[in-house]
């Protein structure tokens, strides 16, 4: 009897999970199949999609024409540097907020957080004006300034909480050996925060990888444009060839998926400080 009830609940749970998986994955499959079609100016009907034959023609066209490869490399550079920049500076400031005592610390932190609440659309004009007066319009430096500046806040907020869970006693081993704050940060906090850093890396990367509006405002030169702008070019004013749009989008999400696969192992790892201290 007990066995049967057990089986029943298992069945319910698994079917719900399965339905969830199908729901989430279905649009994605639709997208992949549409990218095999030719000239889909209106979104294809289900029977057309299901009869699609795998072909890489659209992918080839996307990659070879329309400067797409160039945009891809541009985006790699932009998002890569922005990711490392915001992780590095963000973790440094998180360390300061977690471990140093200084006047107005909490107030400063709140102000820091407050900038997270400002919608991008409101901020873009003042941001652009600042970047413009610095003479950084049309440079990646200007873009990085905004991306890293924006990314640091989130990273700091996230990592501060994480850093505070790391036992202070661990630092003593370094202090005894004559090491300073840098060493504590570099040899204790960073290695122990790998799960948090991995998560933040994905957020930081995909956040800037997808970013369209700021990139378009700052970068005026076509050859410096990033991938999301390239993607938008496939959508015309009157008509969009959805098979090309989808093929381009699929190429565009590949790096994010790869990054996710690399870092996903770090997500669930916990207990790195277990047994580090004697109770």
């Amino acid at each position: 009897m007990q066995q049967r009830v057990h089986f029943f609940w298992k069945f319910v749970v698994y079917s719900m999970l399965l339905i969830g998986v199908i729901l989430f994955i279905f649009p994605f499959i639709y997208m992949i199949l549409t990218s095999f079609l030719q000239g889909a100016y209106t979104l294809p009907r289900p029977h057309e999609v299901l009869s699609a034959k795998p072909s890489l023609d659209n992918y080839k066209e996307v990659w070879n024409n329309h400067n797409f490869a160039r945009y891809f490399m541009n985006s790699m550079l932009v998002a890569g540097v922005a990711m490392f920049g915001s992780l590095f500076i963000g973790s440094l400031s998180a360390y300061a907020f977690a471990r140093f005592e200084f006047p107005f610390k909490e107030l400063l932190f709140r102000i820091f957080l407050f900038t997270l609440m400002i919608p991008l659309v409101l901020a873009i004009v003042p941001q652009f004006t600042v970047i413009n007066s610095l003479g950084l319009v049309n440079t990646y430096l200007g873009l990085w300034l905004i991306y890293i500046g924006g990314g640091v806040v989130g990273t700091t907020f996230f990592l501060r909480g994480f850093f505070e869970t790391i036992p202070k006693d661990l630092e003593e081993s370094i202090i005894i050996d004559g090491g300073g704050n840098w060493r504590i940060y570099w040899n204790i906090y960073l290695p122990l925060s790998k799960p948090a850093l991995g998560t933040m890396a994905i957020f930081a990367f995909s956040g800037t990888w997808d970013e369209y509006f700021v990139a378009l405002s700052i970068i005026k030169e076509e050859s410096l444009r990033t991938l999301p702008i390239g993607l938008m070019m496939f959508q015309g004013q009157y008509a969009s060839n959805w098979s090309l749009v989808f093929a381009a989008s699929l190429i565009a999400i590949l790096p994010v998926i790869i990054l996710y696969i690399i870092f996903q192992k770090k997500f669930v790892q916990g207990g790195q400080t277990d047994g580090a201290l004697k109770g």
Binding site: V121, I124, V125, F128, T129, N132, V137, Y212, F213, L216, S217, K220, E221, E222, I229, M232, M233, Q235, G236, Q237
Partner: peptide
Amino acid sequence: LTRMPFEGLKQQVITAVAGSATP
């Protein structure tokens, strides 16, 4: 020649006008 995408184009122009960075 610079080809602009339609998405958010108006906002782009407003930003450029505000920053005196129009074409």
